[in-house]
Amino acid sequence: MMFLLIVAAAVAAAPPVLELTADPRPLHPYAELGASGVEVDGDLLIRNSGNAAWELVELALDVRDPRGRLIQRKELNQNGTSPSINLVTERIVAAGKSLLIFNPLARFAADVHPARLDYRLTFQGPGEKRLVLPVSMTPRAEPVRRFAFPLKGRTLVWDGHDFASHHRRWNYVHPVLAGAGFASIAARYSMDLILVDAEGRRSTGNEDVNANWTSFGAPVRSVGPGRVVALREDQADDRNFDVATVAIPNAMYGNYVVIAHDDGSFSMYGHVQQGSVVPKIGARVRTGEAIARVGASGSALFPHLHFQRMDGPNDRSEGVPTRFTGIARPGGGAFANGFVDSGDMVIAD
């Protein structure tokens, strides 16, 4: 009888199983010092194992320095006629589903050094019930090495190094992407690059014709020394992608080249022209060496170069930020921090 009582007491004392859980993705996002301050590109993954939907109604953040001291406190809430919590556009976690919250409260002044980010997420569920989830991130220093720019001439960064980029908002909990094996954002720091003329024109004539684009057929250069570890060059430049093949690593980029660098990162050059890849698997390449030509293969809206760095050789990896050297703005202005953002015009030799 005593044994049964002890077991019953132990069961009664067990903590309740939470319907909602929260995890940082990645666990150690990069803290990048840019022209406008520090940016931490990390997301929060919320999972709902219950049978009812929950809505995020408040998101609070304590920022701590390397010594653990509280240096800043931020909050999104329901106050006012146009509540700040509305800045988080997707806030409902359906029963049995997951939700990604992208880049929450992730910008800081240049003199703020966020060593730990302690979030408190308040959800409201059935019967006005509330649940508060704590979750922490520990940012890490970003790589300091700079790389050469992959295109020569005047380039428009159609989509670049900033939170608004569609690449950064890769919703891998979407059923199609989750079913294809995605659980990270390899393109988190990627960019789409288009060559333009001095007036910013990207093409002449009918844009349905690839040859009318300034970019089409332009040389693609390796951003640094390394070894070619993956490539493909058999896909037509027809701007066509079969979504059914998304489970194949790197398939969405059509033709591509992947180079392993000595710092442990991998650079990816996507949508390159059919049959244009120069080096073979295993070949060593130099900084600035021509490795392919700009094309329109795979999931390409138009001829352009998709470039990214990753911590692995394919799009199931995590993204790595890239600072460039040897680039300038039209008129000679410098990119002091080496980052290029969506909308930037870049001149590279």
Rank of each mutant, 00 (worst) to 15 (best):
R232C: 09
G200H: 08
G205V: 13
A230V: 13
G160A: 07
P139A: 04
A186V: 12
L121Q: 03
Q235H: 12
R130Q: 09
M137F: 06
H161M: 12
Y119C: 03
V229N: 04
V228N: 04
H167I: 01
A183N: 11
L156I: 09
D208R: 15
W213M: 08
I194L: 15
A244S: 14
P175Q: 08
A236Y: 08
I194D: 12
A164H: 10
H174L: 12
D159Y: 04
F123M: 01
F149P: 10
A186N: 07
I194F: 08
V173S: 00
E128D: 15
Y119R: 09
N171S: 05
P126G: 08
L131G: 00
L151C: 00
L131V: 09
I194P: 03
V157R: 06
A236M: 12
G160I: 10
V228H: 04
E142G: 14
H166Q: 00
M137T: 04
P139H: 00
R169M: 02
F182C: 10
S165K: 00
V228G: 03
H161T: 09
H167C: 01
P150R: 05
V243F: 14
F147W: 14
L133I: 02
P150C: 07
M191D: 03
V223K: 00
P225G: 08
S222R: 00
D162Y: 04
G160H: 06
S203Q: 07
S215E: 06
F241Y: 14
D234E: 03
S136D: 07
V223Q: 04
R202P: 08
V132H: 10
T155E: 10
V228S: 07
A218W: 05
D118Y: 04
L177Q: 09
R201N: 15
D208H: 11
